[in-house]
Amino acid sequence: MTEQVRLTVNGVAHEITVEPRQLLVHALREDLGLTGTHVGCDTSQCGACTVQLNGAAVKSCTVLAVQVDGGSITTIEGMAPEGGLHALQNAFWEKHGLQCGFCTPGMIMAAADLLAGNPDPTDDEIRHGIEGNLCRCTGYQNIVAAIREAGSTLRAGAPVPAGAQD
């Protein structure tokens, strides 16, 4: 048995045919080729698979593709404005908020949810806000700094530097 699923991903409408057991993360990675969303566990705990579903962060390994039929999804590939970077992406780069980069897309997507509801979080709020995301490389310190920095950039409404220049 298969099902037709319509999804808007990063602003682009797609229609895919999936088995009901297909997880959203696999639909994104395998059917749509959006491999920026990662899988780091099998118990819904690492958050590497975090995407935004209708504006809220969710673990795409714990959502069936069929469940989100008609939904709108943003993945890490859809974060950056044309030719630039999202404030979070830029801040992760500036603050060395990543090492191997495997947790990074999920971290950024979870952080976006946090900043949307709490534009000026304390360090403590940031640390709790990313408790659904594991990072084994950074000890989290620079991730916290990056999210703090992105918050202040977004609050200031300052344009985010385009491209990859220092």
Binding site: R29, E30, G33, L34, T35, G36, T37, H38, V39, T75, I76, E77, M79, A80, L85, Q89, N90, F92, W93, E94, H96, L98, G101, F102, T104, P105, I108, A164, D166
Partner: peptide, 22 residues
């Protein structure tokens, strides 16, 4: 303290880890 040259691909979801290869 130079920003890492490998980061642009990772922060945009363009890293290429093993499971990304098809």
């Amino acid at each position: 303290r130079i920003k890492r040259v490998e980061d642009p691909r990772f922060i945009t979801g363009k890293g290429r880890y093993l499971d990304d290869i098809k």
